[in-house]
């Protein structure tokens, strides 16, 4: 059992990180923490993918002339992760700009308080 865990260490760590990030994004009331949680979640999945692409004893996929293909790691997860990183940074920027707009309006970073204030404001108009 312990050996198996040690062997799958990358996967184990990445799901622990995924759980932490997911829960932070879902339940932490502070918006900045939520965004950090989002990044934790995304990077954990990238770690999972990158670990999956690794082949024991393989090299980075910079192909040399006339070499066997078994020398290299799997390039597919790498490409997926590259795409994913860019998507993650776009979402983060969008999230942060929305956070900033909200702070300018309600002077709080706590989503519960913001929701409360927004509800009040809605009845007022």
């Amino acid at each position: 059992m312990l050996e198996l865990i040690l062997e799958q260490r990358y996967y184990m760590i990445s799901i622990i990180l995924f759980a932490i990030g997911f829960v932070t994004l879902f339940l932490h009331p502070n918006l900045i923490k939520k965004i950090i949680g989002l990044n934790l979640m995304d990077t954990s999945i990238f770690l999972f993918l990158a670990a999956m692409g690794y082949v024991g004893g393989g090299q980075a996929p910079i192909i040399e002339e006339g070499s066997s293909w078994t020398m290299y790691i799997n390039p597919v997860p790498g490409g997926l992760v590259l795409t994913g990183i860019v998507v993650a940074v776009s979402t983060t920027a969008l999230f942060l700009s929305l956070t900033h707009r909200l702070y300018r309006k309600y002077h709080s970073l706590n989503l519960d308080v913001i929701l409360m204030l927004a509800k009040k404001g809605q009845e007022d108009t």
Binding site: T43, G78, L96
Partner: peptide, 23 residues
């Protein structure tokens, strides 16, 4: 360490650099 220098460069520039700067 996982032999993915492309990802390492991108993460260093985007994750550690750009995202933190935005924060």
């Amino acid at each position: 360490l996982l032999q993915s220098p492309d990802l390492a460069i991108t993460e260093a520039a985007v994750g550690a650099g750009m995202t933190s700067l935005l924060f």
